[in-house]
Write a protein that binds this DNA or RNA. Structure first.
Length: 627
RNA sequence: GGGCCCGUAGCUCAGCUUGGACAGAGUGUUGGACUUCUAAUCCAAUGGUCAAGGGAUCGAAGCCCUUCGGGCCCGCCA
């Protein structure tokens, strides 16, 4: 608790004043002020001015007068501003120590909002027939970042990745390798996911348009896939698992980790659908159409003018959304768990990645359900997700237990499209996996790696390649993750090979660089700063503003969690880095002859370093000591 | 026809949940700062009818309505 203590102190004091003056209850706001207007501002005078029939400024004066007895602890001065705001000036001789000392704790920024409650985050969930593209990366990074933030706020987080290993896209690649003579094994040096996505899937899709007879073959394969013991199903299982492994390699390169893999084929065979379908019938959430275009289908009625949604076809088979419903219910723990669990692998973060299985397993039963479920899927699926959200709210007393975390897609700039051989006449374009028109995630990582290597090598000519590469990895992961998270979820990201891969300006390397600068100072100082001091010597504007930003860490975490808004943390990292750079340019830490000042400044540098590490950590970004 | 999202500086975006103080960054352009704790940096200048119109309010970029412009979705595909 740091800057928040200051806000809480002021809030409760104003509350007392309102009671003293017998004023009506008011939902006033106490928040950090803009620069030049003190440290904290309060809008209470605007809200009370009507009731008191006075100008906001006059109310502000009354309240600031009444506030005088409360001064002396964390607030040094209070001022009624002619605009009507009440501005508070912090007592930094107290606050400095509180902030700097608490920032030394490993727990700094930790907030207990979740009380260890179980929460599921599902993300990635890419069909296992192709390589990840830059659009998938946005999903993955959003999901992973949200999971990290939830962990920091004491939720018991379980991260799931849903693998759609049955269905048409899988039938397509099987058709490619069994009927079109395409090799089952990728050529040497080509990743499994890239081979299947770029070659097999694209070529098979092309073939459909010229060869109508293939449609029957496709349907036959789709049918065979349902029968676990068939040769086709075995082949399908083999291929999708190889593709999945290759996809996961890409995710792991970006420091993204999971707790459990769910396979659609198993959900289908588990019988969960029948259970949830019966429940929906009982609750009269579905109805069997007798006539009309959906005759003999089970449907969910569309709300206000929206089309009805078919769940079960007239031939008795379930549609896509009908597979999602049992999965959603399973994630919320609404159905008995039919699965056993097996270890898929041990990930680089040291954690086991589990997978569900319907076979016997030596491993003990696991629990990957949550009281709350967050499903990260792009906005194009909003309608389906809306239906599922509504259904879940009818199944569960907590109406907000199922959350569709929606985000806009990634498109390609016209320049990027052109590089891929498409003339989009100056407009941005949607990617298409089917057409093989997309920016591959691995290739972006590789391009960034080349670029970052050149930059890093040129700046550190004496450094060996191994050390350079270690730094490069951190820069690459940081750059890509930051680029995917820094803007709001409802904004389209237009990917551009030049702009999106920049290492300057508002980017991860900028922030990482400030970290390296702080590490440089601490390294050269040659001694560990001593925090047993009053920090009263830190009072120039650059020091104060840096301390202030460090103190606001938890306010931003609170904001990020309450609004499921990971970009808040990215913006905080940037603000913090800007504050440090200003300090760095204007305050020479090591030059000062006064050892006490030098020590306190080194404490500040240390405090900054630890805080930016933690903040970047929430984004899955690590920071090098040297760049 | 119905639904969702976006529109703020040349470009990319914060700010909108909780209405009030000169609308902020990055990038671009122009100029400046490296014998100094790392110039992936910093400083300065430049740049805005907050898409348009209306409404409620003492007060709107923000709330409500309408219009315009752009994107996405609406299958017995997944």
């Amino acid at each position: 608790m740091t800057f928040k203590i200051l806000l809480d102190e002021i809030h409760s004091n104003i509350q007392k004043i309102i009671e003293q003056l017998k004023l009506p209850e008011t939902l006033f706001v106490v928040e950090p002020a803009k620069s030049n207007f003190g440290d904290v501002m309060c809008n209470v005078s605007f809200l009370l001015s009507k009731h008191l029939k006075k100008k906001p400024y006059d109310v502000a004066q009354i309240i600031s007068d009444k506030y005088q007895p409360f001064l002396g602890n964390l607030v040094e001065k209070v001022e009624a501003h002619p605009s009507g705001y009440i501005n508070f000036f912090a007592n930094y001789s107290h606050l400095n120590g509180i902030i700097l000392k608490s920032s030394m704790s490993d727990n700094y920024g930790f907030l207990d909002l979740g009380h260890k409650s179980k929460i599921v985050v599902e993300h990635t969930s890419v069909n296992p027939n192709k390589a990840l593209h830059i659009g998938h990366i946005r999903n993955i990074i959003i999901g992973d970042t949200v999971a990290r933030i939830l962990r920091k706020t004491n939720f018991d987080v379980r991260v799931l990745n849903y693998v759609d290993d049955s269905g048409l896209q899988v039938a397509d690649i099987i058709l490619g390798v069994t009927k079109l003579g395409l090799s089952k094994k990728p050529p040497k040096g080509k990743k499994f996911d890239q081979y299947y996505g770029d070659e097999v899937y694209v070529k098979t899709t092309e073939e459909y348009s010229s060869n109508q007879d293939l449609e029957k073959t496709r349907q036959k394969i789709l049918q065979d896939l349902e029968d676990t013991d068939s040769e086709i199903a075995k082949l399908g299982n083999e291929i999708t698992r190889d593709v999945l492994k290759a996809q996961l390699d890409t995710c792991w390169r970006l420091s993204v980790f999971y707790d459990c893999l769910n396979f659609e084929s198993q959900i289908i065979r588990s019988g969960l659908w029948t259970q949830v379908f019966e429940k929906m019938k009982e609750m009269k959430l579905v109805e069997l159409q007798q006539e009309g275009k959906n005759a003999k289908c089970w449907i969910i009625k569309g709300e206000n003018n929206e089309e009805d949604k078919v769940l079960v076809r007239s031939n008795g088979t379930a549609t896509y959304i009908a597979k999602d419903i049992p999965y959603a219910a399973w994630k919320l723990g609404l159905l008995p768990d039919p699965f056993n669990y097996a270890q898929y692998s041990i990930q680089d973060n040291g954690k086991i990645l589990w997978e569900t299985t319907l076979d016997e397993s030596q491993e003990s039963k696991q629990d990957f359900t949550g009281d709350k479920v967050i499903t990260v899927i792009d906005s194009r699926q909003s309608r389906l997700q809306k239906i599922i959200t509504k259904l879940m709210s009818q199944f569960k007393s907590d109406k907000k237990s199922y959350v569709h975390l929606s985000y806009e897609s990634v498109t390609l700039s016209s320049a990027a499209a052109k590089q891929l051989g498409i003339d989009s006449v100056g407009k941005q374009t949607q990617m298409s996996g089917r057409k093989g028109f997309y920016v591959n995630a691995d290739s972006v990582i590789n391009m960034l790696t080349t670029k970052a290597f050149t930059e890093t090598h040129n700046r550190n000519l004496e450094m060996n390649d191994e050390s350079v590469n270690q730094i490069v990895r951190q820069i690459v992961v940081g750059t890509l993750r930051y680029e995917m998270i820094k803007q709001d979820l409802d904004k389209i990201i237009t990917f551009d090979f030049v702009k999106s891969l920049s290492l300057e300006g508002d980017t991860a390397p900028y922030i990482q660089y400030t970290h390296a600068r702080s590490a440089g100072i601490l390294g050269k100082a040659g001694f560990d700063p001593n925090f047993e001091t009053t920090f009263e010597l830190l009072k120039n504007p650059f020091e104060i503003s840096l301390i202030k930003e460090i103190g606001k860490f938890e306010l931003h975490i609170l904001d990020a969690v309450n609004n499921f808004s990971p970009k808040v943390i990215a913006r905080y990292c940037h603000i913090l880095a800007v504050a440090f750079n200003a300090f760095y340019e204007h305050v020479k830490v090591l030059d000062d002859k006064n050892e006490s000042i030098k020590n306190e400044r080194l404490c500040l540098v240390k405090s900054f370093q630890l805080t930016i590490q933690k903040a970047l950590g929430l984004l899955g970004i690590s920071a090098p000591e040297q760049m």
